[in-house]
Nucleic acid binder design. Structure first.
Length: 341
DNA sequence: CGTCCTACCTGGAGGC
DNA sequence: TGCCTCCAGGTAGGAC
């Protein structure tokens, strides 16, 4: 499945092959692909026509293309999503959910997704009151509204600009905690997502403080995208293995050095995966094949039930966790007595 | 409000 | 061979 490194590879591909081009037409082949867009398929198609792709950005596993008027085309690849650029005349695969053609008549962009967990939507950018110098302030600047843009009745930054000024950062420090990060504008629907550990806006001290304030198991916390984004089941297990922490360890009992170890492990695991997964792809293909080279070589815990731990040789254990699996070393990561299951 | 649980979806694997 | 069940995963939104 596309993890953070694959999403970054896709972002780079889009930067290379889609940025600087203008959409001629968008076609939604499967309505579920835009289920989070309040415009619906027809409205989405209409709103995308003639829009330029100016920039390709990413936070965690979300990526977006910046359009004009402070709007973005936001994408999540879910479990099986791909964004492919290629010859516009090639046959349509059965899993194509959306297609974009360009005014230059060149390669088209297709969103394919077998399991349809992924989605696309048009969304305005939030802006931070303390935007970084040099960054263009978007029109959506004033007002103070919590980041729940898709709730029914919530005004959004509409393409016609009518309620554009209702969207912006919230000044409520508590709810803005994760939402607005050091000068970075992000699409409104993901304003509640915390920065991922690979971006400059990530605040290690804040992460540590918020983590220790929680009352849950440490793996649940790692998967909580409002605490830290970009960590999924695989990297959570890998980071916990490195940090020698059991997945059910109560967050409120974590000591300072353990939190530091954990964050270092998360950063290392993601960094290595990025370096391994962000490899080249050929000129007309935005690569997401779901297989990072990293997965084959470097997993120490995930998916390795019964195989010896790379540190101590004890067979890796698999536990049921949140309707899925957790892998850990019974020796290096002993279950705490007061586990948060 | 913080935490927890479930629906969503499809195709591949394995059981019988 | 074929059908059935299970499993994988991230997220939103509702329950508590």
């Amino acid at each position: 499945m596309p993890e953070l490194p694959e999403v970054e590879t896709v972002r780079e591909g889009l930067e290379r092959h889609a940025v600087g081009r203008t959409v001629e037409a968008a076609r939604i082949v499967h309505p579920r692909a835009v289920r989070r867009d309040p415009r619906g398929p027809a409205g989405f198609e209409a709103a995308m026509a003639g829009r330029p792709f100016k920039k390709a950005e990413r936070r965690g596993k979300y990526l977006w293309l910046t359009l004009d008027d402070g709007e973005t085309l936001l994408a999540h690849l879910g479990m099986s999503g791909q964004l492919l650029i290629g010859d516009p005349d090639r046959p349509m695969s059965p899993h194509v959910r959306a297609r974009f053609t360009f005014t230059d008549g060149g390669p088209d962009l297709r969103f394919t997704d077998q399991r349809t967990f992924g989605h696309l939507l048009l969304a305005p950018l939030t802006t931070d009151a303390v935007a970084t110098p040099g960054e263009q302030p978007s029109p959506c600047m004033e007002g103070s509204r919590p980041p729940s843009p898709l709730a029914p009745g919530t005004p959004r930054c509409a393409p016609d600009g009518k309620d554009r000024h209702l969207i912006g950062r919230t000044d409520d420090a508590a709810s803005a905690d994760a939402a607005v990060s050091a000068g970075r504008a992000v699409p409104v629907p993901i304003a509640h997502i915390a920065p991922d550990p690979m971006e400059g806006a990530f605040d290690a001290a804040k992460f540590a403080a918020r983590l220790r304030r929680k009352h849950t198991g440490v793996k649940r916390a790692l998967l909580d995208q409002s605490l830290v984004s970009g960590v999924g089941n695989i990297y959570a297990d890998e980071a916990l293995w490195r940090a020698k922490l059991h997945w059910a360890r109560p967050t409120e009992t974590l000591r300072g050095p353990e939190v530091s170890r954990l964050l270092a492990a998360v950063t290392e695991v993601l960094g290595e995966a990025l370096r391994a997964g962000g490899t080249s792809f050929d000129a007309l293909y935005v690569n997401v094949n779901g297989e990072s080279g990293y997965f084959d070589r470097s997993l120490n815990a995930y998916g390795r039930e019964g195989e010896p731990c790379g540190r101590c040789g004890t067979p890796i254990r698999r536990d049921a966790f949140m309707n899925r699996s957790s892998y850990s070393c019974p020796h290096c990561q002993p279950r705490p007595r007061n586990a948060h299951l």
